[in-house]
Amino acid sequence: MELIKAVDVKIFPYRRLKPETTEKILNSIMEYDGILRVMINGNSIPKVVGYGPAKGTQVNHEDRKVIKVKNDSVELRVSVGELILTVKYENLDLFLEKLQNLLENTLSFGFEVSTGIFTKTNITVSDYLKIGYGIDNTIDPRLIGMVDPKAKSQDTVKLIGD
Protein backbone atom coordinates (compact mmCIF):
# COMPACT_ATOMS: atom_id res chain seq x y z
CA MET A 1 0.00 0.00 0.00
CA GLU A 2 1.45 3.33 -1.07
CA LEU A 3 1.67 5.95 1.67
CA ILE A 4 0.16 9.25 0.55
CA LYS A 5 1.12 12.44 2.39
CA ALA A 6 -2.19 14.11 3.14
CA VAL A 7 -3.67 16.73 5.41
CA ASP A 8 -7.24 17.40 6.49
CA VAL A 9 -8.97 20.70 5.84
CA LYS A 10 -11.96 21.47 8.05
CA ILE A 11 -14.60 23.92 6.84
CA PHE A 12 -16.71 25.18 9.72
CA PRO A 13 -19.50 27.52 8.55
CA TYR A 14 -21.08 29.72 11.22
CA ARG A 15 -24.51 28.46 10.15
CA ARG A 16 -25.87 25.11 9.03
CA LEU A 17 -25.66 24.62 5.28
CA LYS A 18 -28.78 24.08 3.18
CA PRO A 19 -28.69 21.07 0.81
CA GLU A 20 -28.44 23.34 -2.25
CA THR A 21 -25.42 25.18 -0.81
CA THR A 22 -23.80 21.90 0.22
CA GLU A 23 -24.31 20.51 -3.28
CA LYS A 24 -22.78 23.60 -4.89
CA ILE A 25 -19.74 23.59 -2.60
CA LEU A 26 -19.13 19.84 -2.94
CA ASN A 27 -19.39 19.88 -6.73
CA SER A 28 -16.91 22.75 -6.93
CA ILE A 29 -14.50 21.12 -4.47
CA MET A 30 -14.60 17.78 -6.28
CA GLU A 31 -13.17 19.52 -9.37
CA TYR A 32 -9.99 20.50 -7.49
CA ASP A 33 -6.84 18.39 -7.79
CA GLY A 34 -5.68 16.35 -4.81
CA ILE A 35 -9.00 15.56 -3.08
CA LEU A 36 -8.79 12.14 -1.43
CA ARG A 37 -11.83 12.10 0.87
CA VAL A 38 -14.76 14.28 1.91
CA MET A 39 -16.68 13.84 5.16
CA ILE A 40 -19.92 15.63 5.96
CA ASN A 41 -20.68 16.08 9.66
CA GLY A 42 -23.70 17.46 11.47
CA ASN A 43 -26.73 16.63 13.54
CA SER A 44 -28.61 13.54 12.40
CA ILE A 45 -31.91 13.99 10.57
CA PRO A 46 -33.83 10.74 11.12
CA LYS A 47 -36.54 9.48 8.75
CA VAL A 48 -38.69 8.35 11.67
CA VAL A 49 -39.02 9.65 15.24
CA GLY A 50 -37.13 7.14 17.40
CA TYR A 51 -38.56 7.86 20.85
CA GLY A 52 -41.14 9.87 22.77
CA PRO A 53 -44.87 10.28 22.20
CA ALA A 54 -44.42 10.62 18.41
CA LYS A 55 -42.32 7.44 18.11
CA GLY A 56 -42.70 5.87 14.68
CA THR A 57 -43.97 9.00 12.91
CA GLN A 58 -42.31 10.23 9.73
CA VAL A 59 -39.97 13.21 10.03
CA ASN A 60 -40.45 15.59 7.12
CA HIS A 61 -37.33 17.71 7.55
CA GLU A 62 -36.65 20.06 4.65
CA ASP A 63 -32.89 19.43 4.79
CA ARG A 64 -33.08 15.65 4.37
CA LYS A 65 -32.70 15.60 0.61
CA VAL A 66 -30.85 13.78 -2.10
CA ILE A 67 -28.17 15.92 -3.73
CA LYS A 68 -26.07 15.26 -6.84
CA VAL A 69 -22.29 15.22 -6.46
CA LYS A 70 -20.40 14.45 -9.68
CA ASN A 71 -23.58 12.87 -11.10
CA ASP A 72 -23.90 10.52 -8.10
CA SER A 73 -26.87 10.76 -5.76
CA VAL A 74 -26.01 11.37 -2.11
CA GLU A 75 -28.71 11.36 0.56
CA LEU A 76 -28.05 14.00 3.21
CA ARG A 77 -28.78 12.29 6.52
CA VAL A 78 -27.40 15.18 8.58
CA SER A 79 -27.93 18.89 8.87
CA VAL A 80 -24.54 19.94 7.46
CA GLY A 81 -22.46 21.64 10.14
CA GLU A 82 -18.94 21.01 8.89
CA LEU A 83 -17.02 19.48 6.02
CA ILE A 84 -13.71 17.68 6.44
CA LEU A 85 -11.65 17.23 3.30
CA THR A 86 -8.55 15.08 3.03
CA VAL A 87 -6.17 16.64 0.51
CA LYS A 88 -2.79 15.60 -0.87
CA TYR A 89 -0.19 17.65 0.96
CA GLU A 90 1.64 18.83 -2.16
CA ASN A 91 -1.60 20.48 -3.44
CA LEU A 92 -2.44 22.23 -0.16
CA ASP A 93 -1.50 25.87 -0.82
CA LEU A 94 -3.27 26.11 -4.17
CA PHE A 95 -6.22 24.15 -2.77
CA LEU A 96 -6.63 26.51 0.21
CA GLU A 97 -6.51 29.56 -2.07
CA LYS A 98 -9.22 28.13 -4.36
CA LEU A 99 -11.29 27.00 -1.38
CA GLN A 100 -11.17 30.43 0.27
CA ASN A 101 -12.39 32.09 -2.96
CA LEU A 102 -15.17 29.51 -3.37
CA LEU A 103 -16.44 29.93 0.18
CA GLU A 104 -16.30 33.74 0.07
CA ASN A 105 -18.32 33.73 -3.18
CA THR A 106 -20.81 31.06 -2.05
CA LEU A 107 -21.51 31.76 1.62
CA SER A 108 -23.17 34.97 2.79
CA PHE A 109 -22.02 34.39 6.38
CA GLY A 110 -18.77 33.68 8.18
CA PHE A 111 -16.78 30.48 8.24
CA GLU A 112 -13.48 29.08 9.47
CA VAL A 113 -11.02 26.95 7.54
CA SER A 114 -8.51 24.91 9.56
CA THR A 115 -5.82 22.47 8.53
CA GLY A 116 -4.55 19.54 10.56
CA ILE A 117 -5.44 15.91 11.17
CA PHE A 118 -9.15 15.55 11.96
CA THR A 119 -9.71 11.98 10.75
CA LYS A 120 -8.27 8.59 11.64
CA THR A 121 -4.98 7.79 9.94
CA ASN A 122 -4.42 4.28 11.32
CA ILE A 123 -6.61 1.21 10.99
CA THR A 124 -8.99 1.10 13.95
CA VAL A 125 -10.35 -1.82 15.96
CA SER A 126 -13.75 -1.17 14.33
CA ASP A 127 -12.11 -1.53 10.90
CA TYR A 128 -10.74 -4.93 11.91
CA LEU A 129 -14.06 -6.05 13.38
CA LYS A 130 -16.17 -4.91 10.42
CA ILE A 131 -13.80 -5.72 7.54
CA GLY A 132 -11.60 -8.45 9.03
CA TYR A 133 -8.01 -9.14 9.99
CA GLY A 134 -5.36 -8.96 7.30
CA ILE A 135 -6.75 -5.73 5.83
CA ASP A 136 -3.56 -3.77 6.56
CA ASN A 137 -2.24 -4.05 3.01
CA THR A 138 -5.54 -4.29 1.13
CA ILE A 139 -7.74 -1.52 2.54
CA ASP A 140 -8.21 1.65 0.52
CA PRO A 141 -6.59 4.40 2.67
CA ARG A 142 -9.65 6.61 2.10
CA LEU A 143 -11.75 4.09 4.06
CA ILE A 144 -9.59 3.95 7.20
CA GLY A 145 -11.62 4.99 10.22
CA MET A 146 -14.84 5.33 8.21
CA VAL A 147 -16.39 2.15 9.60
CA ASP A 148 -19.40 2.49 11.88
CA PRO A 149 -19.76 -0.89 13.61
CA LYS A 150 -23.49 -0.32 14.18
CA ALA A 151 -24.37 0.67 10.60
CA LYS A 152 -24.13 -0.81 7.14
CA SER A 153 -21.20 0.77 5.30
CA GLN A 154 -23.31 1.37 2.20
CA ASP A 155 -25.56 3.59 4.34
CA THR A 156 -22.77 5.79 5.70
CA VAL A 157 -19.97 5.69 3.09
CA LYS A 158 -20.50 6.77 -0.53
CA LEU A 159 -17.69 6.39 -3.09
CA ILE A 160 -18.12 9.07 -5.75
CA GLY A 161 -16.61 9.15 -9.23
CA ASP A 162 -13.60 6.88 -8.89
Results as ranks from 00 to 15, higher is better:
T106D: 00
V87T: 00
I11Q: 03
I123W: 06
G56P: 02
D136L: 09
V125A: 11
S28K: 14
G134A: 12
N101G: 13
I35Y: 05
S44K: 11
M39P: 00
I117H: 11
Y51F: 12
G34Y: 00
N60H: 14
D8S: 11
S79A: 14
V9T: 05
V74S: 06
R37M: 06
K24M: 04
L94S: 14
R16K: 14
Y14D: 14
K47F: 06
H61P: 00
N105V: 00
Q100C: 09
I67P: 01
V147P: 00
T124V: 09
N105S: 15
Y32I: 04
E20F: 08
K18P: 03
D72C: 15
I139P: 01
T22S: 13
T119H: 07
I67A: 01
T138K: 10
K24Y: 08
S44C: 06
K18A: 11
E20K: 13
L96N: 05
P46I: 10
M39Y: 13
N71L: 07
N27D: 10
V78D: 03
R142M: 05
I67Y: 03
F111M: 07
G52P: 05
D33C: 04
N71H: 12
D127W: 03
F95I: 09
V147H: 02
N122I: 04
F118W: 07
R77E: 07
R77Y: 12
E112P: 01
V125R: 15
G81M: 01
E82P: 01
I144R: 07
Q58Y: 15
N105K: 15
P46K: 14
V147T: 08
R37S: 12
V80I: 08
T86E: 04
D63S: 11
I11N: 02
I84W: 04
I25D: 00
Y51V: 06
G52Y: 08
T115G: 05
V48N: 09
V49R: 09
V125F: 11
S79H: 13
N71S: 15
K98I: 01
K88Y: 06
V113G: 00
L94F: 10
I135Q: 05
G134P: 03
G116C: 10
D33S: 10
D148P: 04
V125P: 03
E75Q: 13
A6C: 06
I25N: 00
P19G: 09
G34I: 01
E20C: 03
K98Q: 02
V87F: 01
I144M: 05
Y128R: 15
I84T: 08
Y128F: 08
G110K: 12
V147Q: 07
T119M: 10
S114M: 09
A6E: 05
V48P: 02
E62G: 15
T119S: 15
R15F: 10
I123R: 04
V38W: 01
Y51N: 09
V7T: 13
P46L: 10
P19W: 03
I84D: 02
E23W: 10
Q58R: 13
R64V: 05
I117N: 12
V125H: 12
I35K: 01
N122S: 11
